[in-house]
Nucleic acid binder design. Structure first.
Length: 386
DNA sequence: CAAACCGGGATCTGCCATTTAA
DNA sequence: TTAAATGGCAGATCCCGGTTTG
């Protein structure tokens, strides 16, 4: 990886010494110069013609084009890679194909994360094996690479990855969670060990601060409910905890229960977003004549109210209210807010059609799977007694 | 038996800024 | 000085069904 800087020196100016010692490595790929993009501002005021400082490796470009890589995209993302003299695009492609990736997937991976072509075969092999500690098949890994090439390629430190996996494993998440963690939040993998450790320790500290009995358990609880947590900064999580503490006036044990439970999902929201959602929820509830205590209860029992943006939540509530449901009923069964507005609208219509009475029969019909709801409607239609 | 309770599953990257290495 | 490595951010739900309960 390191033997690479020679060519530029050749084209460039100084560093002739470098040239000397590297000349043995000279490679075919030097062809022409692509355009300079900057004029050299400072240095020599003299008038020697400035050689282009930045030249792309033309044969590399050609290769990439042939492979179907979106070179424009690659250039935009990691321009430096295109200037490298030695790259391993062929090796990478072959490697990935041997793992079952199509040419199209390979091209897309390189387009989105060009640095991938700087990895050596040995490196790739090792890294793949490490990923295979968690994933049972190559195909699974390919899917993830296709989704998020950066997660696999951004770091070149296999030793770190290994330690990281050991660490993650040592948390004793159950295998299912570990698998899900890395499937859905693969960036966790390429975090440094230190970063992951910091978050875990931070969570332990929080637990202890809140008077939790078992701080080791806490990160597990949070992670299994929110596998994205390790891709967030501790700063963000800390701020969110404070936002919730102060805006809801929660005490320690309430906070602990919240985060160990369903509240974990909300911990990773951006701070602004959380604040905004809280404020608009509060406004909305006040406009519906709810008490502060109602709002608190709602959030504690169903923290996911804070997840949808103001418009989504508001329109959902409006639909329900317009359909003849009271805000009190919603506060009792907030899970009805789980479903999409479209879904809610459709169900309200169907229920109206069969003359369903929410006051008499409650609203939990709305909180059921499609299948169960359909069955329910059928029953209601068959026996329109009431 | 149906309703209610409850937890789980899917999903989440792609960019920018800063620091570090060569 | 450039490129590589790394940290961090914004974005913004919906659905299903096993088990318990009545």
């Amino acid at each position: 990886m390191a033997a690479v800087s020679g060519m530029r020196a050749l084209l460039g100016l100084h560093r002739s010494i470098m040239f000397q010692c590297c000349s043995g490595l000279t490679q075919v790929q030097l062809k022409a110069t692509y355009l300079p993009r900057g004029l050299c501002s400072s240095d020599t005021k003299g008038n020697e013609p400035k050689l282009p400082v930045n030249t792309e490796n033309e044969s590399l470009l050609e290769n990439l084009n042939l492979m179907g890589v979106d070179v424009k995209m690659a250039r935009q993302r990691q321009p430096g890679v295109l200037r490298k003299t030695f790259t391993n695009e062929q090796g990478l492609a072959q490697f990935l194909k041997s793992k079952g990736a199509s040419s199209k997937v390979v091209a897309s991976i390189i387009s989105r994360y060009p640095r991938a072509i700087t990895r050596s075969l040995e490196h790739l092999d090792q890294r793949w094996e490490l990923w295979r500690n968690i994933f049972k098949t190559d195909a699974e890994i390919v899917t993830i690479l296709d989704r998020s090439p950066e997660s696999f390629f951004r770091s070149s430190d296999n030793a770190e990855l290994k330690k990281n996996i050991t660490f993650l494993t040592s948390l004793e998440l159950d295998t299912k969670v570990l698998h899900r963690l890395l499937t859905t939040a693969p960036r966790t993998f390429s975090n440094s060990l230190e970063l992951n450790r910091q978050m875990v320790e931070f969570l332990e500290d929080i637990c202890a601060e809140l008077g939790g009995k078992n701080p080791q358990q806490f990160p597990k609880a949070v992670i299994s409910r929110n596998v994205y947590i390790l891709t967030r900064s501790t700063k963000r999580v800390k701020t969110n905890i404070e936002i919730l503490r102060t805006s809801l006036k929660l005490d320690d044990s309430e906070l602990l229960a919240l985060f160990q439970g369903p509240g974990a999902e909300i911990l990773g929201l951006s701070n602004q977003y959380l604040r905004k959602n809280f404020n608009s929820l509060q406004q909305k509830m006040v406009s519906l004549r709810c008490q502060k205590a109602d709002i608190k209860k709602l959030i504690i029992s169903y923290p996911m109210v804070l997840y949808p943006g103001p418009n989504t939540l508001s329109s959902k509530l409006d639909c329900l209210l317009k359909g003849g449901i009271t805000i009190t009923q919603i506060l009792e069964k907030p899970k009805v807010l789980d479903y999409s507005t479209q879904n809610i609208i459709g169900r309200l219509e169907e229920l109206k059609r069969v003359g369903y009475d929410f006051q008499k029969n409650g609203i939990s019909v709305l909180d059921s799977s499609r299948k169960r709801f359909a069955a329910k409607i059928e029953r209601l239609a068959a026996s329109p007694d009431d």
